[in-house]
């Protein structure tokens, strides 16, 4: 059965309008995504390093976070700041991927760890020393319980206690208590790891 001409016309106008709307939304999403990646790529890559050791796994996790962000952009309502929202999404994706990544890492534990390619580029002794410290820090962070790790990662990215409260759901006083304990633990772990290498 053919629809009356006027009805078909109005439907096609609707369809065109909907297509146009979708295109606008796609463009906005595309631009928002590029803006977020441009602004936070380094932070997101550091976050991935806080969860997994190997370069390939970091890249995978970074891409999974990127996919998560892409999917989450349309639901961003501006209730939280862009940064708070982004870290929530990123940490949540990292957590939900961690079980799978953990299994893979366990299976392929024999593989060499990250940082090896970096050390080759470093020339001065001082830089080498800093790189050792950095490696000890990242390893120590990865060895933390997940919630402590998330809090310290947010803290190291310079987020305020109020922002960490919004992201983690912990109260500011709980964040402060945990952070001082975690910082102590990190220092001890780093020292132990550095001593272990010497």
């Amino acid at each position: 059965m053919r629809l009356p001409v006027w009805k078909r016309k109005s439907m096609s106008t609707q369809a065109i309008a909907q297509q146009g709307q979708e295109r606008v939304e796609d463009t906005t999403r595309h631009e928002t995504f590029l803006h977020l990646i441009g602004q936070y790529e380094a932070a997101l890559r550091r976050l991935a390093a806080g969860y997994v050791a190997r370069d390939a796994d970091r890249e995978d996790l970074f891409q999974e976070i990127a996919v998560g962000l892409w999917r989450a952009i349309p639901s961003y309502r501006g209730e939280a700041s862009e940064r708070t929202w982004l870290y929530r999404v990123a940490h949540n994706i990292a957590i939900s991927s961690s079980a799978r990544l953990y299994r893979r890492e366990k299976r392929e534990r024999a593989m060499p760890e990250a940082f090896d390619h970096i050390s080759a580029r470093l020339d001065s002794e001082q830089e080498l020393l800093r790189n050792e410290k950095r490696r000890a820090l990242v390893e120590a962070i990865r060895s933390l319980p997940a919630l402590d790790r998330q809090i310290v990662l947010l803290h190291l990215e310079d987020l305020s206690y109020a922002e960490i409260e919004q992201i983690s759901g912990l109260s500011q006083s709980a964040v402060a208590t945990r952070l001082s304990r975690v910082r102590e633990r990190l220092k001890e772990e780093m020292q132990a790891r550095e001593m272990g290498r010497q």
């Binding site: 890559r45 990242v138 190291l156 990215e157 910082r183």
Partner: peptide, 16 residues
């Protein structure tokens, strides 16, 4: 710690 953390070198395997 923050300075060490934020100066981590990383290789960007994928262009934006």
């Amino acid at each position: 710690l923050r300075e060490l953390w934020c100066t981590q070198p990383y290789s960007s395997a994928t262009k934006r």
